[in-house]
């Protein structure tokens, strides 16, 4: 157990040292959203209508940015091979790493979503389904993306392949996440898509660390 705590602490310490690394996703998110703001005519009501989609896609693309580094830097400095031979459960190590990824590049996006939504002229009544949805959806991306990053860790062209493999797997997350906001915007019940997101999150938390560990072992055989 202590080994896992140490791993978690190491992830956070490394992130604190490489500040540009984890500042990138929130910055990217802000840039995408402001570009949409510049791209349309001033105070366009259409912008508010598209806000759920813009915020969701922006957040997911931003979180995708840092995924490739998840195992690559560990592979380069040999930490990954140490993890593979150490007695610590690789599955738990993968879980911890994905969790750290979410804390560093998913959670800031969730917190940023509310002020950015205000910039897009998003009705404040809809903030709850948006933020709850993002809070449930961004960890899904960290775990699904962690699995795909493990699949592509040893590959020279892994960086290009990663988003192609991740995007179809997170389609349901976007559909239900944006769907929840849209439904409550129309005065309808938003809880069903949010429950779906919770189900997807539970499934990814449970199953994907196992498969990601298998993918890592496969890559190093």
């Amino acid at each position: 157990m202590s080994a896992l705590v140490a791993l978690f602490a190491r992830e956070l310490k490394l992130a604190a040292r490489a500040r540009t690394e984890w500042l990138m996703p929130p910055l990217f998110f802000v840039i995408v959203v402001t570009l949409f703001g510049f791209g349309v005519r001033p105070n366009d009501p259409q912008l508010a209508a598209f806000a759920p989609a813009i915020l969701w896609v922006g957040a997911l693309l931003a979180a995708l940015l840092s995924l490739e580094r998840l195992y690559r830097s560990d592979q380069e400095d040999g930490t990954l091979e140490q993890l593979l031979v150490s007695p610590t459960s690789l599955t738990f190590a993968v879980f911890i790493k994905s969790l750290a990824h979410w804390l560093l590049s998913g959670l800031p996006l969730v917190l940023l979503a509310a002020p950015l939504a205000a910039m897009l002229g998003f009705p404040s009544a809809l903030l709850t389904p948006l933020v709850v949805g993002l809070a449930l959806g961004t960890p899904c991306l960290s775990f699904i993306g962690g699995f795909v990053a493990a699949l592509t860790v040893g590959l020279p062209r892994g960086g290009a392949l990663l988003p192609v493999l991740v995007l179809p797997l997170i389609v349901p997350v976007v559909i239900f996440g944006a769907g929840a906001v849209r439904a409550s915007g129309q005065g309808l019940d938003a809880s069903a898509p949010l429950y779906f997101l919770a189900a997807i999150l539970m499934f990814t938390l449970t199953v994907l660390p196992w498969l990601a560990a298998a993918a890592l072992r496969n890559a190093f055989e």
Partner: peptide
């Protein structure tokens, strides 16, 4: 290695 990676992806999908 490729086939095993594909197997994992196929199972998730």
């Amino acid at each position: 290695t490729a086939a095993r990676a594909c197997g994992l992806l196929a199972i998730v999908g």
